[in-house]
Design a binder for these strands. Structure first.
Length: 320
RNA sequence: GGACGGGUGGGUGAGUGGCUAAAACCAGCAGACUGUAAAUCUGCCGCUCCUUGCGGGCUACGAAGGUUCGAAUCCUUCCCCGUCCA
């Protein structure tokens, strides 16, 4: 129906430490592609070791996009990511390069591919007012308020989930419509591209082991020094990226509020939980071709390549 | 050798006669999530059976006995652990 050209894009999804970067870079070399990060934390400049950004050596000359594009006091948002990603895609299309997304932040990929409802951005003043009305205490009133504004959505959000309640109430007030109605509005899916999704799924036990090993490696690579440097550069303690796994723990170590070993254990644990949440999210992702193992594994890489090639070849003749 | 203190479910740890398969927290597992997403939140969490019910059975608070209608909780002995005295 649509006579515009449809180009393939690759999306490598999987939990943290599953080797997405390694696979992405390898595929980029094989297929003439460029890596596009899809990770909210790697977008921040200066937070390198702790977010496991691939180093320059690891990138092996492959171009990377959407990494180091935000300042620490900028705010990463799903919608903002989408805009930037579309720009990158346009550029790659012109240059006839295959986009290879390495996806840690599942929400961002979904928003990129499926679009976002037309919803207003966050409004801090409004949020402050809403929070104040709580008297700094229970979030029950938010839930009650939402029940009046949009009973349907109120049923879906736990009365204890302040973050989501705040967002829902905010949207209802700003749009003067129930959120459920706002969400029914048309979304604009990504146009002109077809996603080929590869999922990395190492055995749980192995993944956790790798999480531990990688945490140790990151500490050895100077994570602590990175945090010290960031603090010394005058970065405010409430800068968003300091919330990322590990950064608050290491800050506590530097402030002598925590022992290094305690921090190490806490980081490993938080990372395990994070990996688990990612797996939960990606499990529901449609059309993923799952591979058992790590992205750095040669066998996995060959399997990924093979499947992608079959997909690209198949689509050429299938589409009209 | 003696005197105290203690041994509770994967871990920490509450519980001092019935309301206790045993608080709470952690770990673990499952899940939700349309602009904070490395965030935020929910459920499950001894085993087992079915007619899946605020259902039944079994096993459980170091071990073995005992008291009691009823014990993780009281008594006796034993075994461990910690501290102190010789």
């Amino acid at each position: 129906m649509n006579n515009e050209k449809i180009s393939p894009l690759i999306a490598v999804v999987g939990p943290t430490a599953s080797g997405k970067s390694a696979l992405g870079i390898w595929l980029a070399q094989k297929l003439g592609g460029e890596v596009v990060g899809c990770d909210s934390t790697q977008m921040y400049r200066g937070f390198d070791v702790g977010t496991a950004k691939p180093t320059m050596e690891e990138r092996q000359g492959v171009a990377h996009h959407l990494i180091d594009v935000l300042e620490p006091n900028d705010e990463a948002t799903a919608g903002g990511y989408r805009e930037r990603a579309i720009e990158v895609l346009n550029g790659l299309c012109e240059r006839q390069r295959l986009p290879i997304f390495t996806v840690g932040t599942g929400l961002y990929l979904r928003v990129l591919l499926e679009g976002l409802a037309e919803v207003p951005l966050r409004s801090e003043p409004l949020r402050d007012r809403l929070r104040k009305r709580a008297g700094g205490k229970s979030v029950g009133h938010l839930h009650r308020m939402l029940k009046k504004l949009d009973p349907e959505t109120a049923k879906k959000i736990a009365a204890t989930d302040e973050q989501k309640l705040l967002r829902a109430v905010e949207v209802c007030l700003l749009t003067k419509k129930p959120l459920s109605e706002v969400y029914q509005g048309e979304r604009k899916p990504l146009d002109g591209w077809r996603a080929i999704k590869i999922g990395l799924q190492p055995k749980r036990e192995k993944l956790y082991e790798q999480v531990h090993v990688r945490t140790d490696a990151m500490l050895e690579r100077g994570w602590m020094e990175e945090v010290r440097g960031l603090i010394e550069s005058g970065m405010p303690a409430n800068a968003k990226p300091f919330d990322f796994i590990g950064y608050k723990e290491l800050r506590a170590v530097l402030a002598r509020e925590m022992e290094l070993e305690e921090a190490r254990a806490a980081i490993q644990q938080a990372t395990r939980r994070y990996a688990k949440r990612q797996m939960t999210w990606f499990r529901r992702e449609q059309g993923v071709h799952w591979l058992t193992g790590f992205g750095g594994d040669a066998k996995v890489q060959e399997q990924a390549l093979e499947w992608i090639q079959s997909q690209i070849a198949g689509s050429g003749s299938a589409s009209s």
